[in-house]
Structure formats: structure tokens, C-alpha cells
């Protein structure tokens, strides 16, 4: 594992753009295509908003930690974790269109988008102990001259 970056942000939606920008700045150094960069930004955006909205529901406050590392020359790993309420049923949470929220027009597509735009996703969570989402993205267009 190389070039490990760790950032901690307050778990508020205002920081969603910042989380994407940090991930994009890191990934830019690996020479991604525009499309790959967009996919990374989108996946991070989903993971961060999940942590901020569902990790700390209601008036709960806390922080979201993002760790990024290069695990192989063309592959990055992004870990987004919170210390919030955790997920009781991870498999159900990851189902397309599943949402706990009924009134606020949430689509329940966050995990589906993360799955589509990365190569691997792992969710570790325990009720009361928070959630960690690990995303692995291979940049296919990396050439080692």
C-alpha cells in the first residue's frame, strides 16, 4: 500500500463536495480517464452522503473519515467510515431501491451506483458501532511505459 491519505470531516452534507474533490485530487495523480474520475467522484459522493445521512440520523453529530491508498500501481482503495448507528441488515441495505426514508425522495440507489462505478465494494457494519465502506477501483487505462 502506497501514498496513504487520511482525512476526517464533519458528517454534514455540506462536506459532500469536499469529499469528492479530495478523492478526485488523489486519483488525478494516477492518470485516470475523465470517465473514471467521474465514477470515483460519484461513488465517494454516495458513500459520504450515506454516512452523513444514515450513519448519524436526526440530531446526531459525528465525523466521517476517508482513507485513500494506492494498493497496486493502477488500483486505488477508498475507505469511508463513520462511528454512527451502523446497519442492521447489510444485504437489505444494498438492495436496489431499498430505502429507510419514505418522505424525503431518496431513491435507494446509493449502493447500486457505488457497485456499478467501482470494481469491488465491501461493507462492514455493526449496529451501534458505525459503518465502513471500502471501494476498490482499478484504472484500466494505466500504461506502464
Amino acid at each position: 500500500m502506497e501514498k496513504i491519505l487520511k482525512v476526517q470531516m464533519e458528517a454534514v452534507l455540506e462536506n459532500q463536495g469536499l469529499a469528492r474533490a479530495v478523492a478526485a485530487a488523489y486519483a488525478s495523480e494516477l492518470d485516470p480517464t475523465v470517465e473514471e474520475l467521474t465514477e470515483i467522484k460519484t461513488a465517494v459522493s454516495e458513500a459520504f452522503s450515506n454516512a452523513a445521512i444514515h450513519g448519524y440520523p436526526g440530531d446526531m453529530s459525528g465525523s466521517v473519515t476517508m482513507e485513500i491508498a494506492t494498493i497496486r500501481p493502477s488500483t486505488i482503495m477508498i475507505k469511508i467510515s463513520d462511528q454512527g448507528v451502523g446497519i442492521e441488515d447489510i444485504a437489505q441495505a444494498m438492495e436496489p431501491l431499498f430505502t429507510t426514508d419514505t418522505g424525503d425522495e431518496r431513491s435507494g440507489m446509493g449502493f447500486t451506483v457505488m457497485e456499478s462505478f467501482t470494481d469491488k465494494i465491501k461493507v462492514d457494519s455493526r449496529p451501534g458501532e458505525g459503518t465502513t465502506v471500502t471501494l476498490i477501483k482499478k484504472l484500466d487505462t494505466y500504461y506502464d511505459f
Binding site: 469528492r20 460519484t42 452522503s49 425522495e105 446509493g110
Partner: peptide, 10 residues
Amino acid sequence: TFMDSSGIGV
């Protein structure tokens, strides 16, 4: 310039 799944809900 950017949209995530929140656009679906909108």
C-alpha cells in the same frame, strides 16, 4: 457538471 443518485429522487 456532476450528479449522484440524489438526481433520481429529484
